[in-house]
Design a protein around this nucleic acid. Structure first.
Lengths: 238, 238
DNA sequence: CAGTATCCGATGCGATACTG
DNA sequence: CAGTATCGCATCGGATACTG
């Protein structure tokens, strides 16, 4: 908790926020809800948290009984799994996500998109589609990423789907080139594909069955279907 | 915010928590959602916040456009009213409340019930019922409250309903005597009236039409209908 | 890889005093 | 009543180094 002193209220909203509303806590729970179980997978979804703090938050959540540590293998590895109470937080996380999608002006967040975090999100929604060859490679060029991290590859190989930060060496099926923020805006449903193509600096090349409706295999955020409300009504951050 | 650095994520959950999950913020919003508009009414619902911090939180919420300050009268008074975006947070506050009601072990919070806060909550749900005389007085004796604050009166007088901390002098219709935590547990729906009467040290006296089903005029928390889950599955605070 | 220990600077926040 | 200004310290959390 932010402070050692409690809110002193028996109201369930007060008790819930006292447990949940410390920095990073709900993002860690979001990661666990979306299926991550290892320390480093959680970090991929919450890249700016320090290891020290993640470790401490996980301990807090364990002692509150929101998650339990399950030993895996014999090497001290363990998996973090939500308890039933933790799973119950899906409604809270969904409500926060829906509200944010509708009301928050995202301009600030779009100014500093982290490529690792963007790709980790893409990885979560990409899916094999029926007319895809056994091996399928999409190559991303993020024109505004740090010079050594502009190119990334999404590799479908049989059952496996991997994000590669170095050229896997296979023939490329689809080329995508855009700014980090444009890819984020598309994935979040904040701009349409047609507007990105027209004036968003977004280019996509490859066979028509994969570039006409790229979201078919790329997927989108679970909130992409919820439209943002008009700019003048939005909440601003910072 | 707890820290000056942002989460660096375009995820709506991350943006929402960044705006909302600082200490007290969601409780202030809960108060505004439940109808308080003045500085001191908000404080009655959030009694442990300092004036300094409440003032600063209100400014943050205003600059984020979650609320606006509306001048009232000519004396510099103003009312705090949620914007449409702020009203939209009802779903978030409800989700937090429902989850807390189901999953949190409230024992810790029941150890330190604040009488002012308890009565402020009661005041919000009491209602005149049809067979009530024009003037109706209920007297509360909280056996474990600080010695000078044991007795309180709930006064229905025509259209007005007031909580009095000093004897208003009228004839009393209903007498209630119990511990602060018992009143809180009843109002929250955590114990039943019959168990409170049997072994909760709760006594109520007066005409049968007002003491058989006291919640008819006392009301209960909006979450009282949601049952708590079994103790062994609950989340613990502190 | 999967964390833990320690240090220390930043800041959040309560207390107190003051104002219109 | 309805706040604001200032001060000081507790604690939060990031950086760094270390361990099995």
């Amino acid at each position: 908790m932010t402070s050692v002193k409690s809110y002193g209220q028996f109201c369930p909203v007060a008790m819930s926020t006292e447990l949940l509303c410390s920095r990073w806590t709900l993002l860690i729970i979001r990661e666990l809800l979306s299926g991550s179980t290892s320390f480093n997978d959680i970090r991929r979804g919450v890249p700016l948290i320090s290891r020290t703090l993640l470790s401490s938050r996980l301990k807090e959540l364990e002692s509150a009984r929101l998650l339990r540590r399950v030993p895996v293998g014999s090497s001290g590895r363990c998996a973090y799994r939500l308890t039933a109470a933790g799973e119950g937080l899906e409604s809270v996380v969904n409500a926060l996500g829906e509200w944010g999608q509708e009301w928050i002006e995202p301009e600030l967040a779009l100014g500093e998109v982290n490529y690792g975090y963007l790709l980790w999100n893409l990885r979560r929604t990409v899916r094999r589609v029926s007319d895809m060859p056994r091996r399928f490679v999409a190559r991303f060029e993020f024109t505004d990423a740090p010079i050594d991290n502009r190119h990334h590859w999404l590799l479908f190989d049989g059952e496996d789907i991997d994000i590669c930060h170095a050229d896997p060496g296979f023939e490329v099926n689809v080329w995508i080139e855009c700014r980090l923020r444009t890819m984020a805006e598309l994935w979040m449903g904040w701009i349409s594909l047609s507007s990105a193509l027209e004036d968003g600096g977004f280019t996509i090349d490859g066979p028509p069955e994969f570039i006409k409706q790229p979201f078919r295999w790329l997927g989108q955020s679970r909130h992409a279907g919820t439209p943002k409300l008009p700019r003048e009504a939005r909440v601003v951050m910072g």
